[in-house]
Design a protein around this nucleic acid. Structure first.
Length: 433
RNA sequence: UGCUCAGUAGUUCAGUGGUAGAAUAAUUGACUGUUAAUCAAGAGGUCGUAGGUUCGAAUCCUACCUGAGCAGCCA
């Protein structure tokens, strides 16, 4: 007899199989018991009919408790009454691990309680679906960049200085020296691009900001591609192809999960249609002003979340906002060829109120300009000698961008809050479990 | 960090000055197709912490702790 996974039930109809499972819930009457089962691949139901099994098996079916682990043996049936389409009629039950007073019941729970039990919360249906989709996005990311000729170059997590100098960093010690946890691998990816052409990094990122919103994590995962011999317009094409590829991957491989989340695939399908609209920062300001909803907005301001939401809703597709004012962007962005007030950059705003999911730019190539910018930003030139070397030895036009994995997961799954898009979220004042 | 709101049974909440409540989970029993199953029974509490007002405080006041929503910062 074969031991199978629930997800493969459709391939074993009318066969007797064995499955290792946990019990999520149960209902029973005097003559029949319904065991709700999960095995990490899917959720379905086991049916125990008293007249078809031994007294001992039926008694066990009636007393088995939430989240106990079991081996169940039985026959797979196709059944329209099952939400999954298949169920198992159980003939044998073997108890593996006991469970008493499982804290997370099938009823409602508050956020704080669930977060305190995140290690158990991950077992529930919604979290299962989100993590499966997160995994698909990770898988599709590797496939996309490999397909497009990128190689993965890992940026360091411990750094000796602040890459952008702007946001707050986690401070630690590196033996007797100061060190910081990485808030971006970008500068290192630029070195990688000069060595290998098209590269990307995919790793954890740390921001010691007191952020307390549905879009921010203290620790999150970022994908940062960097491409040599590439101008911004071509980079935007890579970006939109990448996003459409992620969404298509989820549509192709996660229909079951989308159904569990009640996420409409038709909405997602529209996000695979390219190109995405591009508007300039100037036009964005004009749109906001014309709407009458943002009386205080003026040229030179950065957009807050209400502004981002308005702009993305206006197009009902992801939208690139290009060429922001130089004053509100980091030092390494390429200056505009004919204007001194803006830089060559773009943010990709996701629709449905999810805000910025990509930030990217063409990078400055002139060593003198960059040195000046570093000084203006109040950074120590010594820390950036290696970065300036990239311009001293065969500088080329190059562009790159950063995608926040959890923001993409939150948007594609349609979740309310980013904390559910990562297995163990690090939030302001939360580092347990 | 600022503004707003909240902390009462394992959980989700009601109770706004006079003996601590409901639903649900867990426990026991009934029921052959349940989908948050249903029905019945018993059980379950340091009302976030400390201080104050009062004959009397879960309730009013002060401080602190914890969390949530929104904002800023950004991916």
């Amino acid at each position: 007899m074969e031991t199978i996974s629930i997800i493969d039930a459709s391939k074993h109809v009318d066969e007797e199989v064995r499955i290792g499972v946990w019990l999520t819930n149960k209902r029973s009457s005097g003559k029949i018991a319904f065991l709700q089962l999960r095995d990490g691949t899917a959720f379905f139901q086991g049916v125990v009919v008293k007249s078809n099994v031994s007294a001992a098996v039926f008694a066990l079916a009636k007393e088995v408790r939430q989240e106990e682990s079991l081996y169940v043996t039985g026959t797979i049936h196709q059944d329209k009454r099952s939400h999954f389409g298949y169920e198992i009629e159980i003939s044998e039950i073997e108890k593996v691990g006991a469970s008493e007073d499982y804290p997370i019941t099938p009823k409602e729970h508050g956020v704080d309680f669930l977060m305190d039990h995140r290690h158990l919360w991950l077992r529930s249906k919604r979290q299962f679906a989100v993590m499966q989709i997160r995994n698909e996005i990770i898988r599709a990311t590797y496939e996309f960049f490999n397909k497009e000729g990128f190689i993965k170059i890992d940026a360091p997590i411990l750094t000796g200085s602040a890459p952008e100098g702007t946001t707050e960093l986690f401070h630690t010690k590196y033996f007797d020296k100061d060190a910081y946890l990485s808030q971006s691998g970008q500068l290192y990816e630029e070195a990688g691009a000069m060595a290998y052409g098209k590269v990307f990094s995919f790793g954890p990122t740390f921001r010691a900001e007191k952020s307390k919103t549905r879009r921010h994590l203290i620790e999150f995962w970022m994908i940062e591609p960097e491409m040599a011999f590439m101008h911004q317009e071509q980079s935007l094409e890579v970006q939109e192809r990448y996003i459409a590829f992620l969404v298509q991957g989820v549509l192709d491989n996660c229909q079951y999960e989308l159904k569990l989340l009640e996420r409409d695939p038709e909405v997602l399908r529209r996000y695979t249609e390219l190109p995405y609209p591009r508007i300039s920062y100037d036009e964005a300001i004009q749109l906001l002003t014309d709407s009458g909803e943002f009386p205080d907005v003026k040229w030179g301001d950065d957009f807050g979340s209400p502004e981002e939401t308005f702009l993305a809703e206006h197009f009902s597709k992801p939208v690139f906002v290009v060429n922001y004012p130089k004053a509100i962007k980091p030092f390494y962005m390429k200056p505009h060829p004919t204007r001194t007030d803006v830089v060559i950059c773009a943010d990709l705003l996701a629709p449905e109120g999810y805000g910025e999911i990509i930030g990217g730019s063409e990078r400055a190539t002139d060593v003198r300009y960059l040195t000046e910018q570093i000084k203006k930003a109040g950074l120590d030139e010594k820390d950036y000698e290696w970065y300036l070397d990239l311009r001293r030895y065969g500088s080329v036009p190059h562009s790159g961008f950063g995608l926040g994995l959890e923001r993409a997961v939150t948007w594609i799954t349609g979740e309310e809050h980013i904390r559910e898009a990562i297995p163990f979220p690090r939030l302001l004042n939360r580092i347990y479990p």
